[in-house]
């Protein structure tokens, strides 16, 4: 939470700095947001609706939803598992492993895509084997899932880990002396204590999954009604000069983003409160 502080009389210098920052913010962030709304509106409501309910568009949004759900489920479960390991286990090389976990944040999405092609492509290490089983991974749904999962791996662990560390072991030990099993302790004591951090991590995972473009583009053939996600659809229509379709879909994603950001803020405030009331 930002606390408003006020120190005496405001000076001219303060006004100038505030003005400059606000101006910068409006030019950089707010104007573009405004621009896309204006652009979409200029094509009219009918174009907006009809381009959104076209089968290709519906399928693209459905596919994005599917990829998001898969990434969220997998990365939430394993994200919690990994966070518990990093917070509670002690072993050599743990710090190195923690750094490795951050790699998906640092790696370019395009490079991530290339890595997946090398590994799972028709001539790749693992892809070869799948090819012989007649399972296609790259340029097909499994590859896109892998790409989405890869770019969102660290979010949940990164959000939970500091909370788990601060939370410490004592409450869990208390539960075990009171007869609770490891599983009971997790559900009754650990999880309730990290729930807001978890929610924040999940929200970030959702936002990134919905918006992912580069990594998914590289590993998909972007075939309409098959491997075309919402962002890929927008890209294809934009490069085909079908602006009405492109901007309608883009506006939808922007609105979804806006909702997500609001949720993030709400969750974040709760999380901070939880930490400080604790």
């Amino acid at each position: 939470m930002i606390e408003v502080k006020h120190y005496g009389k405001k000076k001219v210098g303060q006004w100038i700095i505030t003005g400059l920052v606000l101006a910068w913010f409006f030019v950089l962030v707010f104007f573009p947001l405004f621009g896309i709304v204006k652009e979409t509106v200029s094509y009219g409501l009918k174009a907006f609706v009809s381009s959104l309910i076209s089968p290709a568009s519906l399928h693209a949004f459905w596919l994005t939803l599917l990829l998001t759900v898969v990434a969220v489920v997998l990365n939430t479960v394993l994200g919690v598992v990994m966070a518990i390991m990093f917070a509670r286990h002690h072993f050599k090389g743990k710090l190195l492993l923690e750094t490795v976990l951050d790699l998906p944040f640092a790696v370019s999405p395009v490079v991530a895509g290339v890595m997946l092609i090398i590994l799972f492509g028709p001539n790749g290490w693992i892809g070869n084997w799948f090819e012989s089983m007649n399972i296609k991974i790259i340029y097909a749904l499994p590859g896109m899932m892998l790409a989405t999962i890869f770019v969102t791996i660290p979010f949940v662990t990164r959000e939970i880990l500091p909370v788990l560390r601060e939370f410490g072991r004592e409450q869990e030990e208390a539960a075990s002396t009171l007869g609770a099993s490891g599983w009971q302790t997790f559900w009754r004591v650990t999880l309730p204590s990290i729930k807001w951090a978890l929610a924040y991590g999940i929200t970030l995972t959702i936002a990134r999954s919905i918006g992912e473009f580069g990594a998914v583009l590289v590993v998909s053939a972007s075939i309409i009604n098959k491997t075309q996600t919402a962002t890929l659809l927008i890209h294809d229509e934009f490069t085909d000069f079908n602006y009405a379709g492109a901007f309608s879909a883009a506006l939808v994603l922007a609105i979804v983003s806006f909702i997500i950001i609001t949720v993030i803020q709400f969750v974040y405030t709760k999380k901070e409160k939880g930490l400080h009331n604790a």
Binding site: V29, P32, L33, I36, G211, I234, S257, F258, I261, I264
Partner: peptide, 19 residues
């Protein structure tokens, strides 16, 4: 709103700038 750029798909960002 500072976090908006993290939430908005990068592709949409590019399109906004083009517009």
């Amino acid at each position: 709103l500072v976090d908006i750029p993290f939430a908005i798909p990068t592709l949409v960002t590019g399109m906004m700038l083009v517009v």
